[in-house]
Amino acid sequence: MKKKIIIKIVLIILLVFILVIGFFLVREYVARNSDKDSMTTVENDIEILSKEYPTLMHIYGEELKFDDSISTNNISQITSDIFRRTDDYDYQLLIINDLSGKNVLSDDEWMIIKEVLMSNNDINFLYLGNKQFDKIIEVGIVEGDRTMFQDGDLSLGLFYEGETAISVYGTYTSTLGKSQKDVCEAIMREQAYSIKIGNE
């Protein structure tokens, strides 16, 4: 008899415990989503890349001015060392900014990029410009051929959606705004989209 009472008390305590935990979790969920609902797409992308899935942007070539909360690393040479993982970041994005058409990478550097991308699904790649399209396809970084390009294309990338590497065309084109802000927002959107789809 006494044993039954103890069991009942334990069950009630557990039930209350679950209800309390559930209440707080639901409240947290509602708060989190109502916050997101009030954000613009750009604000939401910044939140994803700076807090939800911290991402380090390696920038080769002309500087790109991202929002202050986005972590960037300007580089002048491609080596495998720059992609060393740290606890600070979940993802990395290598951006080759060649909108001026003046940046030339060596064959060795292209091969390093390919090897890094093929063996890490948390590292993405985006080339800005149109002078090196053929080289990128020739090296085998992205899937496709010259016919895949559309007039006005100014980017080519490889973005992981989970385990799947996706060759991405059209992230930035001549029809979009030309300011630094426009370029950076297009890059952030592509990276944030790939991360979100990959983590569904």
């Binding site: 065309y169 059209g170 979009l176």
Partner: peptide, 12 residues
């Protein structure tokens, strides 16, 4: 050939 090629069409 699976869906490994994507084109982002940005509408302004």
């Amino acid at each position: 050939t699976n869906f490994t090629v994507r084109r982002t069409v940005t509408v302004t």
